[in-house]
Amino acid sequence: MFCGQAARRFSTSASARARRCFKKFNLYEKRATPELQQNLKEGKYPEFEKRFSRGVREPFLPVGGQEFVPNEKPAKERYEFEPFPAHWDVSPNISRNQVLVRKTMWHPRDVEPYEKEFIPEMIPDLIVPDLEGFKLKPYVSYRVPDIEQPEFTAQDLFHAVYTEKIVQDFKEGNLNEDGSSKEPSPAEQLTRDEAKIKVQQTGSDYVW
C-alpha cells in the first residue's frame, strides 16, 4: 500500500501522441497547448521543427563546407546552464544537488547551430516524358477485337533491310556470280567486325 505523502503524476505524452496515432510517434504540430502552438508558428524552436520533420531532408547545406559540430559537453551538464523551454518537465533533484530533466516531449540535438545556405538542386525535380499526342490509354475498349501479331524474327529484319535492294539488283542484272551486289549499299558492305565496333561505340559492353 502507498503511505506518506500523496503524489499526483501527469504526463504530456498522451496528448502528444494524438489518439489516432497508434504507432506512437508524437505529433506535436497537431496537438499542443495553445501557447506552444503559438511558439511553433513563430518559429521559436527551430530545432524542434527539425527533429519532427518526418524524414524530409531540407534543401540546405552548411555555408562554405562547414561541418556539423557536435557539442562536446554531455547533455546533462548543458541543461544546467541553458534556459529550458516552458513545456519541459523540470524539477530539482535535491539529493544530488542537480536539476532533473524528464525528457517528456523532445530531446535537443547535440549539434551547434550553423549557418546554412539554400541549394536549389536538392529539391527533387521529376522529369516526366511529355505525353501530348500519345493516344494509348490505360485500358482497352471492349469493342476492340483480339489482335494477333506474329513474332518479329531475324528473317523479318533481313527482309526490311536487304531484300528490296537484292530484288532490284537481280532485276537489273547487278549481281555477281556469287550473288553479291556489284554496287553494294553501306548496309551490305558492313562486315562482322565493323558492326561489332559500331555497337561497342555506343558504350555498350555487349560481346558476342
Binding site: K135, L136, K137, Y139, S141, R143, V144
Partner: peptide, 13 residues
C-alpha cells in the same frame, strides 16, 4: 459498349 475516356480506341490500338 460505350467507350469511356480512359479506354483505348481500336484505331489507336
Amino acid at each position: 459498349y460505350k467507350e469511356q475516356p480512359k479506354d483505348t480506341v481500336e484505331a489507336d490500338l
